[in-house]
Amino acid sequence: MYEVIITRPRSLAEAIEALGDDNATPLAGGQTLIPTMKQRLAAPEVLVSLAGIEELSGVTIGDGEITIGAATTHADVAREVAGACPALAALAGGIGDPAVRNRGTIGGSLANNDPAADYPAAVLACDATIITNDREIRSDEFFDGMFGTALFEGEIITGVRFPIPERAAYAKFDQPASRFALTGVFVAAGGGVVRVAVTGAGEDGVFRWDAAEQALAKDFSPSAIEGLSPDPSGMIGDLHGTPEYRAHLVGVMTKRAVEAALG
């Protein structure tokens, strides 16, 4: 790691001001950024820590929706939403290990948009809204390819608003080494709409699987998607699985998510 200055603003306004510095980078839970800095692959001059900002942390469960502060850790989400949205709680509780879950935050995960991260699948499937210091962004407009998002330079996520789905589940197949999602599928159904979001598999990061959404909208059952899988072109191929394998897993994990959503 290179020498770096860390600032710890106490309010969102102070954080925004600190991030006005061109050399400043926001630091959420640091579960990606800090290891990258240790390897000297990232070298921010100034880190603006968002961890101590009270207004960015916490979960509010309202009428049909859950709002989660960007700096809320995975462990807190897993605990707080267990009653309101078990699928989201299970997803948060399955990220990394206890150390990761007690440092890593939902805002950090979404801003990073790792192609194998779990949260993007939940956000996209639930049609959540990303709230920033400046605006609100619908999930369909937020994710923009591997590690890409609609966020502007200096814009930070302050929270995420999830409509509570009538039925939902997340089925994740672990990459054997990292235990990130080799393929993870979040299925959410509500108001006659079914959304299926896939993480870990696509070369452009998280994506919605239209064919499965249509099939499930007609018949929300595992049999509706029996034998269905997306086109392997556009799927990731690496040490841990070919595009064909990942395409197949998308089908299997979707089926399992539907089974779980039906209880």
Partner: peptide, 19 residues
């Protein structure tokens, strides 16, 4: 599994890929 690519680069160079 310790894996090199055709250029001799170590692909499984951390616990992210070496299980």
């Amino acid at each position: 599994n310790c894996v090199y690519d055709d250029d001799g680069q170590l692909l499984s160079a951390s616990y992210m890929d070496y299980a």
